[in-house]
């Protein structure tokens, strides 16, 4: 638990979250959401929750990104907001 890293990663997390909601392409949103999950994983490692970080790395950054990409592939990439 090192607080400068914690503060820096927390700020980055908010920026990536806003980015994944602002981007005008659903595939881009899916990939940015994967980056967001990975930052969260980093954050939880810093806080000492290794089991949660491991789960997030395999589930959030891995499988859920694949689910998003699969769903976008089956529907459309187009979005207006």
């Amino acid at each position: 638990m090192v607080w400068p890293i914690d503060l820096a990663v927390l700020t980055l997390v908010v920026m990536v979250a806003i980015g994944s909601l602002m981007v005008k392409d659903l595939l881009g949103a899916a990939i940015l959401f994967g980056a967001y999950s990975f930052m969260m994983c980093l954050l939880w490692t810093v806080m000492g929750a290794v089991d949660v970080a491991f789960t997030e790395a395999s589930v959030g950054a891995g499988v859920s990104t694949v689910f998003f990409v699969g769903a976008v592939f089956r529907t459309s990439r187009r979005t207006r907001d």
Binding site: V50, D51, A53, F54, T55, S58, V59, G62, V63, V66
Partner: peptide, 21 residues
Amino acid sequence: SPGGGFQGGVILGASIILLAI
């Protein structure tokens, strides 16, 4: 060590998903 049924299950599932991709 960190890990258990949930993480290992997801990793095993991801290996088959990688094959499908």
